[in-house]
């Protein structure tokens, strides 16, 4: 039950992109086509989950133990940056096919603030998560990111065909669409 609550809350109610404003750059950057959006989602789910597990353990067994919590930001971002590199190298060796699919998205993830944001949120004392809960939280957040991204990409594909006022074309209408999508997601608040 507890896990279901975390999952629903992270995917719908507190959606990383539409409610918490994390990961907006890739949200606008790679949402022109559904296909690329799906690829990015795969990469984010992978990195976010592994990053959260690693940073959670680091926080618990290194930063908290030595009372150097102020090193959190610098440690976490380094973990994420090196993890992305590592994933890239391993993927290239183990599964060239998957690397082909996700490869170009991996470097972009380092500066995806959703990854760092979720890692920091998962170790917040007021959440009080244990390792398992953090992992579930990370996976669900990543799925929430993917859901928003894929939905948005679908909308944008259709928008190319629509007759939009000249001044609103391109970026502005994308923002307004995102706003409406966020409005729709607000309907979920209060259920968890």
């Amino acid at each position: 039950m507890e896990y279901i609550l975390i999952i629903i809350s992270a995917i719908f109610v507190n959606n990383v992109v539409l409610a918490q404003f994390l990961g907006i750059c890739p949200f606008f950057g790679v949402s022109k086509q559904v296909e690329t959006a799906v690829g990015m989602t795969g990469a984010v789910i992978f990195v976010m989950t592994v990053a959260t597990i690693v940073t959670f353990l680091l926080q618990k067994y290194v930063l908290d133990v030595f009372e150097i919590q102020y090193m959190q930001t610098i440690t976490f971002i380094l973990v994420i940056a090196s993890l992305v590199q590592l994933v890239e190298i391993i993927l290239k060796k183990v599964s060239p096919a998957l690397f082909q699919a996700l490869g170009i998205f991996l470097p972009l993830i380092t500066t995806n603030c959703a990854v760092l944001g979720v890692a920091i949120l998962a170790v917040r004392p007021d959440y009080g998560f244990d390792l398992m809960q953090s992992t579930v939280f990370a996976i669900a957040s990543a799925i929430g990111f993917g859901l928003a991204l894929v939905l948005f990409a679908g909308l944008r594909e259709h928008m190319d065909l629509a007759n939009i006022p000249k001044g609103m074309k391109g970026v502005p209408i994308a923002f307004v669409t995102a706003g409406l999508l966020a409005l729709a997601f607000m309907g979920f608040s209060g259920i968890a």
Binding site: L18, A19, Q20, F21, G167, M168, V171, P172, I173, A174, F175, V176, A178, G179, L180, A182, L183, M186
Partner: peptide, 20 residues
């Protein structure tokens, strides 16, 4: 709605359109 998340997106969209 402008203080909430959706309004943020919409307001920014219209500001950019105006600047364009």
């Amino acid at each position: 709605v402008f203080v909430l998340a959706p309004g943020g997106f919409i307001a920014l969209g219209f500001i950019i359109a105006l600047l364009n």
